[in-house]
Simulated assay, not measured.
Amino acid sequence: MAGNYTKDEKRFLKRLGLAIKDRRVEQGLSQEKLAELTGLHRTYVGSVERGERNISALNIKSLADALECQASNFFRATE
């Protein structure tokens, strides 16, 4: 993971990524299909789901829109 993140920050990113992945799997979408729907690269989506990226707010919104949910749903899973 790039950057000097604290243990808590790393845990947060991993939980956020897992929440996105869980929603994607519930929707029956592949990473490739989600990437296509959002305009993001497939490898980027994968790295987000693994908690390796400090994803931007606009990319979170794009993922939430594609997954037909509110972006806040992802954050509830991090608490």
Rank of each mutant, 00 (worst) to 15 (best):
M1F: 14
M1A: 15
M1G: 15
A2T: 13
A2M: 12
G3C: 08
G3N: 09
G3M: 08
N4D: 11
Y5R: 13
T6S: 15
K7N: 13
D8T: 15
E9Q: 15
E9D: 11
E9G: 01
K10A: 14
R11N: 13
F12V: 05
F12R: 06
L13W: 04
L13H: 07
L16Y: 06
L16M: 10
G17F: 07
G17Q: 11
L18E: 15
L18S: 13
K21W: 13
K21H: 15
K21V: 08
R23F: 01
R24V: 09
V25H: 04
E26Q: 14
E26R: 13
E26T: 10
G28Y: 06
G28M: 05
G28P: 07
L29S: 00
L29W: 05
S30V: 07
S30C: 05
E32I: 08
K33A: 10
K33W: 01
L34Y: 05
L34R: 04
L34D: 06
A35N: 03
A35E: 02
T38R: 01
G39K: 05
L40N: 01
H41F: 01
H41K: 09
R42W: 00
R42C: 00
R42K: 11
T43N: 08
T43M: 05
T43Q: 06
T43F: 01
T43R: 07
V45E: 03
V45N: 02
G46F: 08
G46V: 08
G46E: 08
G46A: 13
S47P: 00
S47Q: 15
V48C: 05
V48Y: 01
E49K: 04
E49H: 10
R50F: 04
R50N: 13
R50E: 13
R50Y: 09
G51M: 06
E52N: 14
I55A: 02
I55Y: 00
S56N: 09
S56G: 10
S56M: 07
A57K: 11
L58Y: 12
I60C: 09
I60Q: 06
I60K: 06
K61I: 11
K61L: 13
K61E: 10
S62A: 14
S62P: 00
S62G: 01
L63C: 11
L63I: 14
L63Q: 04
A64R: 10
A64M: 11
A64N: 09
D65T: 11
D65R: 12
L67I: 06
L67T: 04
E68D: 09
E68R: 08
E68P: 00
C69E: 00
Q70K: 14
Q70V: 03
A71D: 09
S72V: 15
S72H: 10
S72N: 07
S72D: 11
S72I: 14
N73P: 00
F74G: 03
F75Q: 02
R76L: 14
R76Q: 12
T78H: 01
T78M: 09
T78G: 00
E79Y: 06
E79R: 08
E79M: 04
E79P: 03
E79Q: 09
